[in-house]
């Protein structure tokens, strides 16, 4: 039994094993409590599709050697900005959705490039710098959202008429456009097919990228910078490529998230978003130095199903207070803490 346990934890890592066990216990409780099981499955699928691309954004940053991208909020802010512009342009539906994505790419790329230059100057401290960079930019944008010259009455404060609202409803714009695409019912609950397909396509594209010459160079630069340099790979450039990609995917990720969620959350909304994505990929078995597509997929499914299922189950057990929120926080930060204690200890 002990040997079995050890081989399991060695292979998958503690976070993945514990979270899986926890999820199983919650599922059993859900059955015991006679929860609406198809509903829970639907909630899980929605959350997986919603967050998957944000989690995917961690892949290039981890593999290019800049570690977990705690500064992902920068990309997220770019995505939100692009989304607001698409509304300002008075677009609707899929057109609005894809315009927002296309618009976000140049923003995120420029921000990612600048951020990459910064990270190249602070090698070894990327994750600390990234965290505070993210916090700073989110705070700075709190002023930005007030000052940006948006005019659309849907977005600006009703009273005073200046500055964007804290939450912008997308119900009339592109809320649920991909969730409803090719949607079909299982056990009476709709499946967000389009969003899941989008996540799948993102994974496939990333998988292909990691097999290209640039992808291989990027992974080598992340795995062992001195080796890469000795073999004629420009390590700083690869790190910038990784950072830019991560930001671009983050920007797209938040648009997909908002599409499913139905709202853009401005101001301090993006502040903690990177942490969810980070803990998901860590639960999937990634480390701060290495991550694969399978880490993304399994981590996203485990972490976000956990959140979807824990909410009703725990609230039924303890209706007073918001224990499920506490569980989410413990899992999110606990897993990050565990991963950070492992950094630089593998030799």
């Amino acid at each position: 039994m002990r040997g079995f346990w050890k081989s399991i934890t060695d292979k998958y890592g503690y976070p993945k094993v514990f979270i899986t066990l926890f999820l199983l216990i919650l599922c059993i409780l859900a059955v015991v409590q006679k929860q609406n099981l198809p509903g829970l499955i639907k909630d899980s699928l929605v959350r997986v599709g919603m967050n998957g691309i944000l989690v995917l954004a961690m892949i290039p940053s981890i593999n290019s050697g800049t570690g977990l991208n705690f500064g992902l909020s920068l990309g997220i802010v770019c995505g939100i900005l692009a989304g607001c512009i698409s509304i300002e342009m008075n677009l609707f539906g899929l057109k609005a959705f894809f315009t927002a994505i296309l618009l976000s790419i140049p923003f995120s790329a420029a921000v990612g490039y600048a951020y990459g230059l910064l990270l190249n100057r602070v090698k070894g401290d990327e994750m600390t710098i990234g965290t505070y960079m993210g916090f700073s930019i989110v705070s700075l944008m709190c002023i930005g959202w007030l000052l940006l010259p948006f005019k659309s009455p849907e977005m600006i404060w009703a009273i005073g008429g200046r500055g964007l609202r804290t939450t912008i409803a997308l119900a009339d714009r592109f809320a649920k456009v991909t969730d409803k695409m090719m949607s079909f019912n299982i056990l009476g609950e709709p499946v967000p097919t389009g969003t899941l397909l989008l996540f799948g396509a993102g994974c496939v594209l990333m998988w292909i990228f990691l097999k290209t010459k640039t992808g291989v160079a990027m992974m080598a630069a992340g795995d062992n910078p001195r080796f890469a340099a000795a073999n004629g790979i420009n390590v700083n450039r690869q790190r910038i490529v990784g950072t830019m990609l991560s930001m671009i995917i983050g920007g797209i990720g938040i648009i997909v998230y908002a599409q499913s969620f139905g709202f853009f959350q401005l101001y301090t909304g993006p502040l903690m978003m990177p942490f969810m994505a980070i803990s998901a990929i860590l639960i999937g078995g990634a480390s701060a130095r290495k991550a694969s597509i399978s880490n993304v997929v399994s981590g996203t499914i485990l972490f976000f199903s956990l959140l979807a299922i824990s909410l009703p189950v725990i609230n039924k057990m303890m209706p007073e207070g918001n224990l499920s929120e506490v569980v989410r926080i413990i899992v999110t930060y606990g897993v990050i803490l565990y991963a950070l204690t492992k950094v630089g200890r593998d030799d």
Binding site: K213, V216, A217, M219, A220, D223, N224, R226, F227, A230, N231, G232, I233, R289, K290
Partner: peptide
């Protein structure tokens, strides 16, 4: 060049043998 610092400069320790063998040639000679 085969470096004197094998584990530091000479190898991608967490990468497969085959990628270690071909990576220089792939990156530089296509």
């Amino acid at each position: 060049f085969v470096s004197e610092y094998r584990r530091g400069v000479g190898l991608l320790l967490d990468t497969s043998i085959e990628m270690n063998i071909v990576i220089s040639s792939m990156q530089i000679q296509n």
